[in-house]
Amino acid sequence: MTSFAEVTLKLLEGFGTTCYIFILTLVLALPLGLIVAFGSMSRFKPLRYVVRTIVWIIRGTPLMLQLIVIFYGPGLLFGVTGFDRVPSVIVAFVINYACYFSEIYRGGIENIPRGQYEAGLVLGMTKVQIFFRITLLQVVKRILAPMSNEVITLVKDTSLARIISVVEIIKSAEAFMRQGLIWPLFYTGVFYLLFIGILTLLFRYAEKKTAYLKV
């Protein structure tokens, strides 16, 4: 008989991988998304069109498909060894989420009245100074709500990693199913709920902290 403690330990192991994918994706996709956003708003037309087309493709196809392409693609298409399993997951997730984030950033940035930007220019500020000193915090406040949705989706999307045999928490639970044990699978839900509960609290805290910004 497999004990509750044993299952918990095993699931925690998988949950570690889940967290790893989540955190690394977030840390890399947040800045990359900003770069993609600037690309999609560039005044240089070819760059803008290329970036927007990439964003369209990434947002228009399932993440699962992208994951498969990145993991199996290099070997099938070019006969070279591609990334390992976990790095494949990270690459696919980072690209996918950077594109989603970029659209959120773009919406946030484009909604900042142009007058503030011009006021900064007239005061001799550089574009970079204006962005970091004036625009960014307002953008952060505006995008907090859509960001929290995406981030919560990301937590659950990590379970897609199991289709290329990465042992995250769902995959760990599936191992018990093969022994005829179904409850560990439902038990994983508790992990997700706790994790997302904490994230929700964090976002609520951030919203409170930026409430003074009436923008």
Partner: peptide
């Protein structure tokens, strides 16, 4: 550098809200 020598007050203020 040139912008610093002129100043402009806008019709709708354009203060930095943050």
């Amino acid at each position: 550098k040139k912008r610093l020598r002129f100043g402009l007050v806008f019709q709708n203020f354009n203060l930095f809200p943050n």
